[in-house]
Computed example of a mutant assay.
Amino acid sequence: MKGLCKLCGNNRPLQNSHIIPRSFYKFIKSHSGQLVRVQEHKEFSHLSNSDPKEFLLCYECEQFLSCEYEISCNNILIDKQKILKSERYNDTFELKGYDYTTYYLFFISILWRAAVSEKYGARGFACLNKFLINSVKNKTIFTMQGDRLDNHVKLLLIKLKDTNEQISQTSLQEIIVDLRIEEPIAEDSDDDATVIYMVLQGFVIAYIIHDPKHPFNHIRFRKRVGILQQSGTTLIPTVDFRELRSIFKAINLIHQRPLKTRAHRIKNKITHNFKSKE
């Protein structure tokens, strides 16, 4: 398929690009073989071998994102040498020894892909493109206006757990919750931030986006716990997934949607045929 590349703007053959990098889907398939896809508007979940993709980038730009961001960050959430249980704080992990700009831009590049895709553009993500593209394209923390992107978009990491031990840590790592906009914590909340989040490999990755007119000190995460730090060390809180309303709803949805297997489809077909003859 030929079209305008979303990154360089040239009219070239387009690659069928992942929004969420392929490595995260590959991680699940290496454990389970196939994906189980659950959608809110469908009664059943179903097995799938395909990862969600769109025609977004030319070959050169696809390789650019892969080489500059993905290769060095693919294992960021499962690297046991970089993510260690904290000896200083309870229910906390420490992410250490990372290059801040590389890690930050890796996750920004995922948000940017969503912003230029048809699927997420319809959800209100499209307006983010103009704020993110310069950083992704030029590997810089600075926007086209010259200010720091991380003054306006903070990256929050939370490690999920199940205190009741009904869901194993391995099972939590095999859940991907697609990018979505967080529901307000309370109707009367005066927090001016927009929060977009996803779940990958047992972690919540949240983008906390502020209106440039407002300083970051209005944010509800005032202690900075979980916010990716420039220092190269970030404290990551461990939270029961039931405490996060949207995450609980998403994981609960998985248990509410029975898997529609081939046998189930055959049974439905036979039932339908009998009803047709009546």
Rank of each mutant, 00 (worst) to 15 (best):
M1K: 14
K2I: 08
P13E: 11
P21D: 01
F27W: 11
K29M: 04
H31P: 01
L35N: 02
V38L: 01
Q39V: 14
Q39I: 13
S48H: 07
D51I: 02
P52H: 01
L56T: 06
L57S: 01
E62L: 06
L65H: 07
S72K: 11
S72H: 07
S72T: 08
L77F: 09
L77S: 02
I78D: 09
K82E: 01
I83L: 01
I83T: 00
K85D: 04
R88S: 13
D91V: 06
Y98K: 05
T101V: 13
Y103I: 13
Y103M: 15
F107W: 05
A115P: 12
S117E: 04
A122W: 11
R123H: 13
G124V: 12
L132F: 11
N134F: 15
S135W: 09
S135G: 14
V136W: 08
T140Y: 03
G146D: 10
R148H: 10
R148S: 04
L149Q: 00
V153S: 00
I158R: 06
K161T: 09
D162Y: 01
T163V: 14
S168W: 08
S171I: 03
R180W: 02
R180P: 03
I181F: 14
P184A: 00
I185Q: 12
D188A: 06
D190H: 14
D192Q: 12
I196G: 06
M198R: 04
L200M: 13
Q201E: 14
F203N: 00
F203D: 00
I205E: 01
A206R: 00
I208E: 02
I208A: 02
D211N: 15
P212E: 03
H214K: 15
F216Q: 12
H218E: 11
V225P: 05
G226K: 02
L228C: 03
Q230H: 12
V239P: 05
R242I: 08
E243Q: 14
R245H: 09
S246D: 14
I247C: 02
N252M: 02
Q256M: 10
R257N: 07
K260W: 04
R262Y: 13
S276N: 10
